[in-house]
Amino acid sequence: MGEASATERDGADTVRGAEAGDGAVIATRALTKRYRGGQPAVDGLDLTVPAGSVFGFLGPNGSGKTTTIRMLMGLIEPTSGTAHVLGRPVPRSARAVLPHVGALIEGPALYGFLSGRDNLLRYDAADPTADPRTRRARVAAALDRVGLTAAAGKKAKAYSLGMKQRLGLAAALLQPRRLLVLDEPTNGLDPQGMREIRGLVRELASDGTTVFLSSHLLDEIEQVCTHAAVMARGRLIVQGPVADLAAGARGRLVVTTPDTGDAARVLKEQGVADVVVTEDRVTGEVPGRDLAEVNAALVAAGVRVRGFGAERASLEDAFVALTGEGFDVAG
């Protein structure tokens, strides 16, 4: 294994040099794909994925995420625009770039009549830069990493969906990668499996691998990603660090109290705008002044306060604010 990683790290330098320019692992300009005679599936996409980030690629089903990923992997020719991965143009330089990229695209695909191990041996043999002398060791390490060592000899058709998903991930981890593209990696997994995959993603990211993660699950993105981009109907709506995106949707002050009428009056006096009363909760925009003083004023006015605090905006709030619609829109 040690011998293998030395070889591959040298290989990685090949691409690193070319990319030194802007530090983006993925950069697209006006990337557009129009399938024959239809609406554009991806329309004028300008995407920048910084090196070392865990980049969440969000959007409802049918928003163009998978088409974008297929263009980045050289499977689909863009109608117009350009895409660079690891500093080199795709699909033109795909064969130089892809050995440094591990990918899980639209779920795993396996040879059902081959064992899990033989599936990985086959995918590794397809990579002309993979050393056959270390193949078995690398396959064993990848199986171990996703927890499939015990099931490695079983035919893949007997695998559960979760096991297939893990085997697909193992295929993406056959070599040390500089970029991992994971399209809906937790699809079909139980909560325990999802937690493990997220743990694995964090672990890989801490080794310096850039992870490009597509998902339609907002909390998944919020839990693991440093950056995110949101797509809807083929267009990029926003991209940036997750913290900035969430901050874009302002948090709200929430007071829980049985004396809602008094509380609302006091909050207005204290300069809180947009006060809304719902059952035993009074909410409003977070005021510019110290929240401790607002709380003291409530108590001084005899309002019985059960709960008081600023609620952080979630990425979901940000999404709703950006698109003006719910997230689970059918494509």
Partner: peptide
């Protein structure tokens, strides 16, 4: 049909080589 083609191509097998 099995979807394995896309994984062979991103491995990358190369279309002419495949």
């Amino acid at each position: 049909n099995a979807g394995t083609l896309r994984y062979l191509l991103v491995a990358p097998a190369g279309r002419t080589r495949l």
